[in-house]
């Protein structure tokens, strides 16, 4: 899923300062799962903003709404009849969702209520961890199902570097060395021959470096 983190309330208050009427839009997709942008978080954030603004003597009217997904046109359309009546939309979806709203409602200012994080997994309740950078050219079959681009702090293709100590990355003892994980797994799978092969320089054009990416499926158009 796409993860995110709350923005500091001070930052959001500063962002909404010029407005008296706004829509607070949540998303039932990824950000609900990582507990930062779902229906419940809409309620908590709306209450917080109302209280703060009322206490400051400048009440704020907030229309609370949560869309199934902010990244799909059919769900975004639900807001169409609503946005005209408000000065801005504060969205707590991921950056893709927020931008999609901005695209669909060009006359309405869009405010980001969260910081979008990474493509990750739920390690346990309350802990999420990055697994994929969406580089567009997967080699997990060669690396024991563990991604060197994401799990190594240097994205090395022939790790580990000298900073791997007792299974931890030099950057932070709490981060497992991605290459230690890869090697352990290759050994367990009997695939160490994959380690000894020189991998060609990665083509980053399929990653963000090639410019904003798009996917076109002719069979679905």
């Amino acid at each position: 899923m796409i993860t995110g983190t709350e923005k500091p309330i001070e930052e959001i208050l500063a962002m909404v300062e010029p407005y008296q009427r706004l829509i607070l839009a949540g998303c039932h997709g990824c950000v609900t799962v990582c507990r930062v942008g779902g229906a419940k978080e809409v309620q908590v954030l709306a209450s917080t903003l109302r209280l703060a603004r009322e206490a400051a003597g400048r009440p704020l009217e907030i229309h609370e709404v949560s869309l199934e997904r902010q990244c799909d046109p059919e769900y975004v359309e639900k807001l169409r009849g609503l946005v005209g009546g408000y000065q801005a939309v504060l969205s707590i979806a991921c950056g893709a969702g927020i931008q999609f709203l901005a695209e669909k409602f060009p006359a309405t200012p869009l405010l980001p209520g969260i910081n979008t994080g990474f493509l990750g997994v739920t390690v346990r309740q309350g802990e999420w961890s990055e697994r994929c950078q969406g580089c567009g050219d997967c080699i997990l079959h060669l690396t024991g199902g563990i991604c060197p681009v994401t799990r190594c702090a240097k994205s090395l293709f022939h790790g580990p570097c000298g900073g791997s100590v007792r299974g931890s990355c030099e950057v932070d003892k709490e981060i497992p060395c991605g290459w230690q994980l890869i090697i352990d797994r290759l050994e367990a799978l009997g695939q160490m021959e994959n380690y000894g092969r020189l991998k060609p320089c990665k083509g980053w054009s399929s990653a963000r470096d090639g410019g904003p990416r798009r996917i076109i499926r002719e069979d679905m158009l």
Binding site: K154, S155, L156, F157, H158, G159, L198, K199, P200, C201, K202, W204
Partner: peptide, 8 residues
Amino acid sequence: VFDIDSMQ
């Protein structure tokens, strides 16, 4: 950066 690694 780490476009390529030391091996490459």
